[in-house]
């Protein structure tokens, strides 16, 4: 009989014990626990992502030979075209570097690229993150810029052994210095949660009042290169309208981002060359 009340309160005691332990345990232990539990699950996501890759590999293999030959020819044409463009870019790059060195400016291309497959996409209304299949082992660094063909993806939030989490450009916790394509003055870009069935979007703030943007005359927003993370000129999105901001001093508006951000499969992490 005496045991029954104790049994009843046992869950409370255990909860109290949990809270006590959690309060007492040093932060470092909590972080280690966090990291271990994360690393424990990471192989599952990587495996799942690799299965998906395998799936797409086999589905490609089911294509007829003719189709593959056709695709091969197209690819070779594209490669040829790209080769020419690459050579031109290389020449321009050399010219630019020599001009910059004449003016004692540091060379522009200070980054190497690390391409990574996306294995997890967490695009909730609370947080906006993706997990990529490259981490500490591949030299990925915290706060490195992440880009894709459509422009800025975000920045590396956390790195683990074989994976990294990337804070997406659509996250409300993501902020960067940007500028309009033909205007050197910096503005602030902040992520904004994308609505269900809608396109990804962000917010631009602190735009000078003389910047005119209309539905017909939209303007591209690009990275300003003034901060310490993103190089200059990477596409962010398009601004279709600006209205007076809440302080009445500057304009603010919505930035329409690339729709492909919703189903990213591969991204590039920019790593500083000197590191």
């Amino acid at each position: 009989m005496a045991k029954r009340p104790l049994n009843r309160y046992r869950p409370f005691l255990l909860l109290g014990l949990f809270i006590f332990i959690w309060k007492v345990v040093p932060k470092s232990v909590q972080l280690t626990l966090h990291k271990s539990f994360y690393e424990f699950q990471a192989p599952l996501w990587i495996g799942s992502s690799k299965i998906e890759d395998l799936h797409s590999y086999w589905s490609t293999r089911t294509n007829s030979e003719n189709k593959l030959i056709e695709a091969g020819i197209q690819l070779s044409r594209n490669n040829h075209e790209l080769r020419i463009q690459l050579d031109q870019v290389k020449l321009q790059q050399e010219e630019l570097n020599s001009l910059r060195s004449l003016h004692n400016l540091s060379p522009i291309n200070n980054y190497t690229y690390e391409t990574a497959r996306v294995c997890k996409r967490d695009l909730t209304s609370w947080w906006q993150e993706i997990t990529i299949r490259k981490g500490d082992n591949h030299g990925i660094l915290k706060n490195s810029p992440v880009i894709f063909a459509g422009g800025v993806v975000g920045k590396v939030k956390e790195t683990y052994e074989t994976t990294s989490t990337v804070l997406l450009i659509t996250s409300r916790h993501f902020r960067m210095a940007a500028r309009f394509e033909n205007d050197p003055r910096p503005v602030t870009y902040i992520g904004s949660i994308n609505s269900s069935f809608g396109n990804p979007k962000g917010i631009v703030r602190d735009a000078p009042s003389d910047v005119i943007v209309t539905q017909e005359k939209s303007q591209k927003l690009v990275s300003s290169g003034l901060g310490s993370i993103f190089p200059e000129g990477i596409n962010i999105g398009t601004v279709h309208y600006l209205e007076p901001g809440t302080n009445g001093l500057f304009k603010a508006g919505k930035v329409l981002l690339d729709k492909r951000l919703l189903y990213l499969k591969e991204v590039s992490v920019l790593l500083p060359k000197n590191k």
């Binding site: 916790h173 902020r175 960067m176 210095a177 910096p186 602030t188 003034l226 901060g227 993103f230």
Partner: peptide, 24 residues
């Protein structure tokens, strides 16, 4: 400076008590 502004914008968390105040 514009560089300082950009660095702070990018490196200080959005929810930090430090904010970037813009006037004219």
């Amino acid at each position: 400076t514009l560089q300082e502004y950009a660095r702070l914008i990018e490196e200080i968390p959005v929810e930090s008590p430090i904010q970037i105040y813009t006037d004219t």
